[in-house]
Design a protein around this nucleic acid. Structure first.
Lengths: 191, 191
DNA sequence: AAAATGACCGAATGGGGAAAATGGTCAACA
DNA sequence: TGTTGACCATTTTCCCCATTCGGTCATTTT
């Protein structure tokens, strides 16, 4: 059989989307990097959008691996939470693809880029939700809606790690773990 | 003495900023509404910015009144929290000035409008911080950093009332109060 | 004399139309 | 059958000029 053109195309597109974002990646560009004619791309992907979807799905798969690595199955949820969220958000923050996409969202508002960032957030949420579910069923934490709980955890984490720094000195890793303990685990009620 | 031109100008500017936002409000416009010459504005305010600052400071003052009204001094912090945050965010959300300014931030990114929205958020935060401080000193809640606690409360509230709805059915007022109770007051630890 | 004014200024903005670029097609070709 | 790039319609970018705006100040009004 001839060389795997589909694979060539996907690899080229992966590079290009990571390098230039969604809008600035042109099909001509991808074709050139892949060393194929533009028309060939359209025998595998009906639209630019479909090609991008495949790259995104690979990216999210990669993110799941990172998440799994950050988890220590022997430890309770709250010991895993900080490493898990840290690794996931760090992965997102440092990966060329997401850097470019989030810039694109900010200063062009490309709908497809927005949608992609939303997908990534959903994937993170789904992963954490899953861990919360199993923590609840193990009786590790009190019964609660896993989806809302995961949502609260992520929002709080992002708030600490990102929003807080906009107007205040950054919080250390230890401080963040401590804050999670204070607010989410123990609560503010006088004991 | 002659008619109070300063007051006329401030009133005209208040209307105009609320009606058109920062950028689209012109000094000529303000002068016309106020029924004075453009030059006259500059005898009271050195720049457009200074005029806007006065309007913002009045606005934040007005917001403080709303906040005070939402508080029942006899009740504990957590009973007041929901009404307080609700009224403040609702006031912000419904006031013509903030509607226009937040649109302006979103689709023009006017620096002055951004700064103004930041100021408003800081004012809300300062108010809540204050209430948290007094709750701590009364022994109503466990000791904690009041600024961080206020920040957590606001972020969580906004997350529930605004972010959650982006991908899920909205939460009722009762549900939000219950979630605050679960996550912030009691904590997730198994008791 | 003091207060008020609006014509005026240079800089910033915006509209719009030409030119370039892009996603997608398809007849020709290997 | 699988591949290609010239081609098409549409969108985006670029550029220039008319207009607008914040701010000043000589003149007018009180």
């Amino acid at each position: 059989m001839s060389i795997d053109r589909r694979k060539q195309i996907v690899e080229a597109a992966t590079k290009s989307f990571a390098l230039f974002g969604y809008k600035a990646t042109t099909m001509e560009q991808v074709a050139k990097i892949a060393g194929v004619g533009k028309g060939t791309i359209y025998t595998f992907f009906a639209q630019k959008e479909d090609l991008f979807d495949e790259i995104m799905s690979n990216f999210i798969q990669e993110m799941r691996l990172v998440a799994e690595k950050a988890i220590d199955p022997g430890k309770p949820l709250f010991d895993n939470l900080h490493p898990l969220l840290f690794e996931l958000l760090d992965f997102r923050r440092k990966h060329e693809l997401t850097i470019k996409l989030s810039h694109e969202v900010k200063d062009m508002g490309t709908p497809k880029a927005q949608e992609a960032m939303r997908q990534i957030e959903q994937a993170i949420l789904a992963f954490v939700t899953n861990k919360v579910e199993s923590a609840v069923s193990k009786g590790e934490i009190r019964p609660c809606d896993p989806a809302i709980t995961a949502f609260v955890m992520l929002k709080l984490y992002v708030a600490f790690i990102h929003d807080w720094e906009k107007t205040n000195p950054p919080l250390s890793n230890e401080k963040i773990a401590e804050l999670f303990q204070t607010y989410l685990v123990e609560g503010l009620a006088v004991k």
